[in-house]
């Protein structure tokens, strides 16, 4: 994505949020307690992957955001996957086809890559502000937000060993640092003026062109797999704004 495109998206979002502020001449909420405009937010985010295909992750990341107004902001973060690897499903499939896979090192499947570290940044759009009431006892204010951005991440995968299925995960291949994109959305619960808790679902993906191997009759031949490699994360972050 070119710089022009990014600028275009940022410009459109700013215009949208400016228009939204103009619309709110007769606002629904006045003296809004948890305004975001002009504030920075530092966050610490543990996350785990969901809807996994063959890989699984648990990550921890730290970020910093800045909001231009109540509706739009920028965020940057970096993180590391403290747990990364394959799901047992893959091992199970492999174990049932040891003979078929003899001689194959690189499985011809998409979504085999897992992340280790990542650095990224993007836009945050918060169109909706509300509050929840729990059994007439507890009230919590929240923002619904959407995120989208790009960065880089280090991706890896496991090759098959010679003695399947036991050494299935013994050879880790560094697939390299790839341009990675993300989008997602979530709820920011405001628990105090400066503290917030974010519950978010985010899809991290990169475009993967992968030279794998497969068998034609009894011969191992190369096969190119082209697809987006996705990791979907549920993130629970604690934010402190100032």
């Amino acid at each position: 994505m070119g710089v022009r495109k990014i600028l275009l998206i940022v410009g459109s979002c700013l215009a949208l949020s400016a228009a939204a502020q103009a619309v709110a001449a007769e606002p629904i909420v006045r003296n809004q307690l948890f305004g975001l405009g002009g504030r920075f937010e530092a966050s610490l985010t543990p996350a785990f992957s969901v809807f996994d295909k063959y890989t699984r992750h648990m990550t921890i990341s730290a970020g910093l955001g800045y909001f231009f107004n109540d509706y739009i902001g920028l965020e940057f973060e970096g993180g590391y996957a403290v747990l990364h690897g394959d799901r047992s499903l893959l091992k199970e499939i492999v174990s049932t086809a040891v003979d078929t896979l003899q001689g194959i090192k690189k499985l011809p499947l998409s979504d085999l890559k897992y992340m280790t570290w990542f650095v990224q940044g993007g836009l945050v759009l918060c169109p909706l502000y509300g509050k929840l009431e729990l059994s007439s006892e507890l009230a919590v204010s929240f923002h619904l937000y959407f995120v989208g951005g790009a960065g880089v991440a280090d991706w890896r995968y496991h090759q098959l060993g010679d003695a399947l299925p036991d050494d299935f995960e013994r050879i880790e291949v560094d697939y390299g640092v790839k341009p990675t994109f993300y989008f997602g959305g979530g709820l920011r619960f405001h628990i105090a003026r400066a503290w917030s808790l974010r519950l978010e679902i985010r899809d991290e993906f990169f475009y993967d062109k992968y030279e794998a191997e497969h068998k034609v009759a009894t011969t191992v031949e190369p096969k190119t797999i082209t697809d987006f490699n996705h990791v979907t994360l549920v993130r629970l972050s604690m934010g402190w704004s100032f």
Partner: peptide, 19 residues
């Protein structure tokens, strides 16, 4: 006291919701 369950209770914290 909340009159009955068809009522919502919100604590007021300085934020004015039109409704």
């Amino acid at each position: 006291r909340v009159v009955d369950e068809t009522y919502n209770y919100w604590p007021f914290r300085g934020e004015y919701w039109e409704d």
